[in-house]
Amino acid sequence: MASQVIEIKRSKEKTFKDQVMDLLPEGGNLNACLTCGLCSSGCPASGLENMDPRKFLRLAVLGLDDEVLNSNWAWMCTMCQRCIYACPMKIDIPALVFNVRNRWPKENQPKGIRGSCEMAFKNETCSAMGATEEDWRFVVEDVAEEVRDTQPGFENLQAPMDKKGAHFFLNQNSREPVTEPDEMVPMWKILDLVGADWTYGSKGWAAENYCLFCADTEMWEKNVRIKAKAVDDLACKVLLNTE
């Protein structure tokens, strides 16, 4: 073992890790790593991009910010938090990953995620697939009508839209109305059968929020506020986020 000692020159400025610690409760415990490796041994993303959670954290702790901030691995960790669950020191590596994503220039972020985040603001629906209020109203009513016409026992099935004062405001992932509308029906039937007082909204109905995934906190909040307003405007008590 004749390997050389690597000296890491640290500037006086705060490292990326220090900056993230300022944002997190208890600093996300980012200084508490015992290097035991429980995080990495139980992480499905270990090995991708020659990276794993422990290595990612070590790079950050050592102030090797370029390596941390430029690795595609930040987009391959799903921030599932299994590493925190396993970690004896409860180190918030997913929050480190989130903040790395946040630092990526918008134009370099994965297009699928960035584009879906921005698409949500094209209409007041928040649909990342660009579904309009008109598309949405049409599909829901069209599918409901077909069920009423063809399925015995559901002649009166309703998929209410903008019903003021309904108890539940149900949202819906855009994938259903856009690509597989019949998949909405089982949920309607269950709600019908239990006599739930529910409604869809013509605005803010799309469940997805990709701004979370590109860690754009401003647009993330903007998206959530449009949805919250839609629920409030209909004076609904509960937002049902199915998934």
């Binding site: 499905p44 391959m76 799903t78 921030m79 994965p110 995620i113 879906s116 990709y210 979370l212 995934f213």
Partner: peptide, 13 residues
Amino acid sequence: CCGGGGGFLQSGF
């Protein structure tokens, strides 16, 4: 985690 979360399905990898 199945690998479908965190935007992985849309990230182009």
